[in-house]
Structures are given as structure tokens and as C-alpha cells.
């Protein structure tokens, strides 16, 4: 099937490549079907199948926050179906402004994708050390 979108040109994807978010993304609860664009790159995109302009840039958590941990009970991961840790990706949503050096990630709301069940969900982790706007590059001194 063809996934139309405003960023990458039409994407030809098979049904098996679709990742279902049964609860959507927070604030976008009704959008359930996504594809992961550039999954092996440092930054991939979670592109909505049914909304051409809706896409979230994601970065693998360990790349920007070594030792990042979910701190959740296994019961909370039930929407993902059968969970195989080796086939589970933990991503952080990136906010990339015009100057990418000021990019931030949201440590309180990671996106977890099970490649085995092709399901994903956005978790909420309310820990004081996790900022919703964590800079991934140090602020430049004097700038």
C-alpha cells in the first residue's frame, strides 16, 4: 500500500510493516497506524499511515541518554502483546527547532515499539530526573 506523506515522497509499504498504536500517541489518541521510516538511522520517523503531515522524529534512547530506563511494571506493557526484549525498541520523541543544536527529547514520554507484535505505545514516566525538554547537546557557552 502507498503511504502518502508530506516529507519523504510516497512510501510503498506492506501490511506487515505497519505498527499499530492501540492508544495512539498522547494528544493524538485517534491515530493508530504508523510506519517507521529510516528505522536503522540514528533518527527515524514515526509516520502516520492515514495522515500525510503527521510524523514524529524519534531517536533511540541510549543514543542520547545512556542508561535510560523505563521504570515500569510489566503489566503496563500489555498493550504491546507478547514482549521480547531483544525485539523491543525504546525511542524518545525529538523536538527539533530551526537550530538543531537546541533539539530536545522528552524523557518522560518514551515510545516503545515491539517489532515482534508490530505494536507500539507511548508511556508516561513521571520521575523528577526526567525532563520533558532534555537538551541532547550542551548549550554553547556565551551564546
Amino acid at each position: 500500500m502507498l503511504v502518502r506523506n508530506t516529507r519523504f515522497g510516497d512510501l510503498d509499504v506492506s501490511e506487515e510493516q505497519i505498527i499499530t498504536f492501540p492508544k495512539g500517541m498522547i494528544g493524538f489518541e485517534r491515530v493508530e497506524r504508523y510506519v517507521l521510516v529510516n528505522p536503522t538511522d540514528k533518527i527515524s520517523w514515526l509516520q502516520a499511515v492515514d495522515d500525510a503531515s503527521l510524523a514524529f522524529p524519534l531517536v533511540q534512547a541510549p543514543l542520547v541518554y545512556p542508561g535510560y530506563s523505563l521504570y515500569v511494571e510489566n503489566e503496563l506493557l500489555e498493550p504491546l502483546g507478547e514482549v521480547d526484549e531483544a525485539m523491543m525498541g525504546i525511542y524518545l520523541v525529538l523536538v527539533v527547532p530551526g537550530d538543531p543544536r537546541n533539539a530536545t527529547v522528552n524523557l518522560k514520554a518514551p515510545v516503545v515499539i515491539s517489532l515482534k507484535s508490530r505494536r507500539g505505545m507511548q508511556l508516561l514516566i513521571d520521575r523528577p530526573e526526567y525532563s520533558v525538554r532534555h537538551r541532547i547537546m550542551p548549550a554553547e557557552k556565551g551564546a
Binding site: L54, A55, V93, N106
Partner: peptide, 18 residues
């Protein structure tokens, strides 16, 4: 509300900047 707002900001990224 805070996370929904960050998600909305995330969707505004330009692919060149990313």
C-alpha cells in the same frame, strides 16, 4: 497536557533540520 504539547511541537520538525 505537557506531553501532548511536546508531541505537537515534535510534529512540526522540518526534515532538513532533522
Amino acid at each position: 497536557a505537557q506531553v501532548a504539547e511536546e508531541n505537537r511541537s515534535a510534529t512540526g520538525a522540518a526534515s532538513d533540520d532533522v
